[in-house]
């Protein structure tokens, strides 16, 4: 386990009861001391590999690594959980956490979108394997954001070509966005840019068609207001009136790591059907008592969502 140098030998030799190890780990999790938590959960797994605790501690380690932004380790832990316990209900959470790890590594559109591609695959995996769980709802939300990001990259390249005078290249890029990413927030701008490009080429008929589609689908969008102005200034009469004023600048949405919204690891209960509020169910007693050890008495008075016996 990823313990610090000097602490590790002390842990390795002192064989300690599994509940104590696990409780200390969970305690550190509450105090958000992720590295120490990982040490203790690692020890649980190493000293008592066959206990039901070991299974839970892999999940806890994954979540601790995720919280400390150590994405590579978190993904490795999640993979290990999936390999060892594919049938277990908590495997859904492992898939979900893996997808969120990739999602949070997405960088700005100017740079390589490798992480975006991986995030998309993993999110789709979660939605396809566990369709009606709370994880799937969050995953569908994140899939839209990922598609928005991929469309954003196409748009930046399209705008670059447009401004360089490579109108043909720009048209194909914007057409790509309209074809593949209609549901994203970039479609209105893509249609607007197509109007600009076709007018630059002199294909007035084509520009009018694209303007009409933009007007029909997004009458209230500022992009249509601009397109309307552009088309009327070049002597065309678009059918639909724009309902929005012109330039309404959209605030820039920096990419916030809203870690609070990420769902916490489940207690023993099965992943619950999609419910409106995302709060996890209160930590109920585990469905069946773990085979080897009797359930410990309540170790802590403070309620914590990480403790199985709360």
């Amino acid at each position: 386990c990823a313990g610090k140098g000097k602490k590790k030998p002390q842990l390795a030799y002192e064989e300690r009861p599994v509940e104590l190890l696990y409780a200390t780990g969970a305690d550190y999790m509450d105090r958000r001391l992720w590295n120490q938590a990982v040490d203790y959960f690692g020890e649980v797994e190493r000293q008592h590999p066959y206990s039901e605790w070991a299974r839970r501690s892999i999940l806890m380690q994954a979540f601790a690594h995720y919280e400390s932004n150590n994405y590579a380790e978190a993904i490795a832990d999640a993979d290990r959980f999936i390999q060892l316990y594919p049938g277990n209900p908590a495997a859904a959470y492992a898939h979900y956490l893996k997808a969120v790890c990739y999602f949070e590594q997405i960088v700005d559109v100017g740079r390589d979108q490798a992480a975006t591609g991986q995030a998309l695959d993993n999110l789709k995996d979660v939605v396809q394997r566990y369709p009606n769980t709370e994880y799937a709802t969050d995953a569908r939300l994140k899939i839209d954001m990922v598609n928005d990001q991929l469309a954003g990259k196409e748009m930046t390249i399209g705008r670059y070509y447009l401004r360089q005078g490579d109108t043909l290249a720009a048209i194909n890029r914007f057409k790509g966005v309209v074809d593949r990413y209609q549901t994203t927030s970039h479609t209105p701008e893509a249609l607007y840019r197509l109007v600009e490009a076709y007018l630059t080429l002199g294909l007035v008929e084509e520009a009018k068609k694209n303007g009409a589609v933009l007007g029909y689908n997004y009458p209230g969008d500022p992009w249509y207001a601009d397109a309307y102005k552009l088309l009327t200034s070049s002597g065309l009469k678009p059918a639909v009136e724009p309902t929005a004023r012109g330039k309404r600048g959209l605030f820039h949405m920096p990419f916030r790591h809203d870690k609070e919204q990420t769902i916490k690891p489940p207690s023993e209960a099965k992943p619950v059907e999609a419910k409106t509020e995302a709060a996890p169910p209160p930590a109920a007693a585990p469905a069946e008592t773990p085979k080897t050890d009797a359930p410990a008495e309540k170790p802590k008075k403070r309620r914590s969502i990480f403790h199985p016996f709360g």
Binding site: V107, T156, I157
Partner: peptide, 20 residues
Amino acid sequence: VGNTQTLDYVIRREMNVSEG
């Protein structure tokens, strides 16, 4: 691909060919 630091257009503007 592979540009983890450099922005896309800084590389693209060095290309003598463009799409199409």
